[in-house]
């Protein structure tokens, strides 16, 4: 805990943004450990994958494009400080009548939650209550969550996507300029990272990637029983492909899964999730009422949860990749412009 506070204070103080990003990753990871100690294994899993994983990748991708030094020496800003202290004071004031930490008689534990804890094994029939609540009781929130990710994917594409240059031209560029020259400097090309000389990363990546995918599949389909589910699996899948793109090259990764396919997949995941809801409506239930999907409610819940988790997984994988591609594609563009300037 104190580690957390120290970490965040340093984030505030440090001027090098790269260091700040790393510290943010550490804070996220520490937070994930704390979540485990607070029994929130699913959340810890996600926080580790997202906070310490994907978001760090995004920050680094951005820093490669924008430079990593903060200009000004941090100085004390009085206005914001007053507001922060005020907000903190209000919350501190509130803690004094808060229910005792960890007490089983708290309103949080006694009002709505017992139903989830006591009934979900019989109503839904899967052991992981977080998955039950996530995908069924509050399945609509999760549908919203998928939509949020979809929105982010669309938004990033809207903001960052440029017209693709012609493929042949791109390949010619790659042949003309030795890869090593592309590297170094603040605009170090992310797609040029895949160098033929880096034997060790190549071998390790080749060894790792299959396992990453298998693990992703396990997390995807084992979410009913243990921690995990579509979201975490999606992040893991995306991480696998991102690793591939980093070690080999973006163009190779694009050959494996093209941008068009990604856009299609982002949409497909949302449609799959919503489609389950629509089918349940057509079968006479309410939206996302899985009971009607099969003759037996429990079997229906199983099918429903499996399908929506799959939808989540697909959209998350594709959206993460779309965001990653968009950032890296931008790096290429800047570098090209720089090269044109030099010539």
């Amino acid at each position: 805990m104190l580690l957390l506070i120290a970490g965040t204070m340093t984030v505030l103080m440090v001027r090098n943004l790269f260091v700040a990003t790393m510290l943010l990753g550490i804070v996220s990871f520490t937070m994930a450990l704390i979540f485990i100690s607070l029994d929130a294994v699913d959340v810890a899993f996600t926080e580790a994958a997202v906070g310490a994983g994907i978001s760090t990748v995004l920050y680094i991708g951005t820093l490669a494009l924008v430079g990593s030094q903060e200009k000004e020496r941090p100085k004390l800003a009085l206005g914001p400080l007053v507001i922060c202290v005020l907000v903190g004071a209000i919350l501190y004031y509130a803690t004094y009548e808060m229910p005792e930490f960890g007490h089983p008689e708290n309103p949080v534990q006694t009002h709505v939650a017992p139903r989830y804890v006591e009934e979900s094994p019989t109503e839904i029939g899967i052991p992981n209550m977080v998955t039950s609540v996530l995908a069924s009781y509050r399945g609509y929130d999760t549908f919203g969550e998928v939509t949020v990710i979809f929105t982010a994917g669309i938004g990033v594409l809207l903001i960052l996507r440029q017209r693709r240059r012609k493929r042949t031209e791109a390949e010619k560029d790659a042949k003309d300029t030795p890869l090593d020259e592309n590297r170094g400097g603040k605009g170090s090309s992310l797609s040029g990272l895949g160098s033929a000389h880096d034997l060790v990363p190549h071998v390790i990546a080749k060894l790792l990637i299959p396992f990453i995918f298998v693990f992703g599949l396990y997390v995807q389909f084992h979410g009913d029983f243990g921690p995990g589910g579509g979201f975490q699996a999606g992040v893991i899948f995306a991480a696998g492909i991102i690793l591939y793109a980093l070690v080999f090259s973006l163009d190779l990764a694009r050959a494996v899964i093209s941008e068009k396919a990604i856009l299609f997949l982002i949409s497909a995941g949302v449609v799959l999730y919503g489609g389950v809801g629509v089918v349940s409506m057509l079968l006479g239930g309410n939206f996302l009422d899985y009971n009607v999907l099969a003759s037996d409610p429990i079997a229906g819940q199983h099918i429903g949860i499996l399908l929506v988790e799959l939808g989540v997984g697909i959209t998350v994988t594709a959206a993460m990749l779309a965001i990653f591609y968009a950032f890296v594609g931008r790096a290429d563009l800047i570098e090209e412009a720089a090269q044109r300037g030099e010539n």
């Binding site: 939509t147 979809f150 669309i154 856009l263 299609f264 982002i266 949409s267 497909a268 949302v270 449609v271 919503g274 809801g277 629509v278 409506m281 057509l282 006479g284 239930g285 309410n286 939206f287």
Partner: peptide, 26 residues
């Protein structure tokens, strides 16, 4: 089969939501 109008509350927000993925592909 349930009559369509009983599903109206969800359709209000669901229709644009479900249309968005298709729209993105057009």
């Amino acid at each position: 089969m349930i009559s369509l109008s009983s599903q109206f509350p969800i359709l209000v927000a669901l229709a644009p939501l479900m249309a968005a993925p298709f729209c993105a592909l057009f």
